[in-house]
């Protein structure tokens, strides 16, 4: 399907329904799709499950979405940070559910979703509280825990440049979860700093091929 080149972030997040699972890219602020999150707040979808490495910093972006009471459940590896006061408060008040997932398992569960893998045996977390209640299997003398894919209804990611077909390139460590989230959601929305003509990106450098991308929008702020 042809990528939709949106005029603004509001158009890019249109139609996200209540109860959706939303994959949100970024590691700290690097690669965080701040303008898309702000647009999602304006758009109003609620009862969301958010899958992201962190659970919001300060009072903006993901933290602002949480503060508005739009998020029922967070799936992440590292919610607790020096400036995660919004999440901390909601969690302690019992107003938000949390599933903590080891960071690599979080990435791999989304990779599995995008790659059509039904589940996978992973050595991470064996013998720890995060493996409690999960099926395990010994393979070649090592114990593994069964992990299931995480599929999103929507992925909101930040990339550096898109071409008008929707091919994406990233910049430095802002790449982080973007490429894997782009494979794992029904609708993938990327905010980028620049949109170039088709053919202007070196095909050898494309990280996320256009097949994964549904909507792109150029934002003025740093991605």
């Amino acid at each position: 399907m042809t990528v939709q080149v949106c005029t603004d972030a509001d158009e890019a997040v249109a139609g996200i329904s209540d109860g959706s699972t939303v994959l949100v890219g970024g590691f700290g602020m690097a690669g965080m799709p701040v303008e898309l999150i702000d647009a999602l707040i304006r758009q109003g979808a609620s009862d969301l499950t958010v899958v992201s490495n962190n659970a919001g910093n300060g009072d903006t972006g993901l933290a602002a979405l949480l503060a508005k009471g739009r998020v029922r459940r967070v799936v992440c590896s590292f919610p607790r940070q020096s400036d995660s006061w919004v999440f901390d408060r909601l969690y302690r008040e019992g107003r938000i559910q949390l599933e903590v997932v080891p960071q690599g398992t979080l990435a791999e569960r989304m990779r599995a979703a995008g790659a059509g893998i039904g589940a996978f045996f992973c050595p991470t977390g064996v013998g720890t509280p995060l493996a409690e209640g999960k099926e395990t299997r010994e393979i070649d003398g090592r114990t593994y825990v069964l992990e299931y894919p995480i599929k999103g209804d929507v992925a909101l990611i930040g990339a550096h440049t898109a071409d008008r077909m929707g091919n994406l390139v990233y910049r430095k460590t802002a790449r982080n979860f973007g490429p894997v989230m782009a494979t794992a959601a029904t609708t993938v929305v990327a905010q980028v700093r620049d949109i170039v003509e088709t053919g202007a990106l070196d095909p050898e450098t494309v990280v996320t091929p256009s097949i994964y991308v549904d909507r792109i929008v150029r934002t003025e702020v740093a991605v």
């Binding site: 590896s77 607790r80 940070q81 969690y91 080891p102 960071q103 690599g104 991470t124 977390g125 995060l130």
Partner: peptide, 12 residues
């Protein structure tokens, strides 16, 4: 508040 990050992945 539990927060594991990459600790379990690194450990093994």
């Amino acid at each position: 508040i539990p927060a594991v990050g990459g600790a379990m992945d690194l450990a093994i």
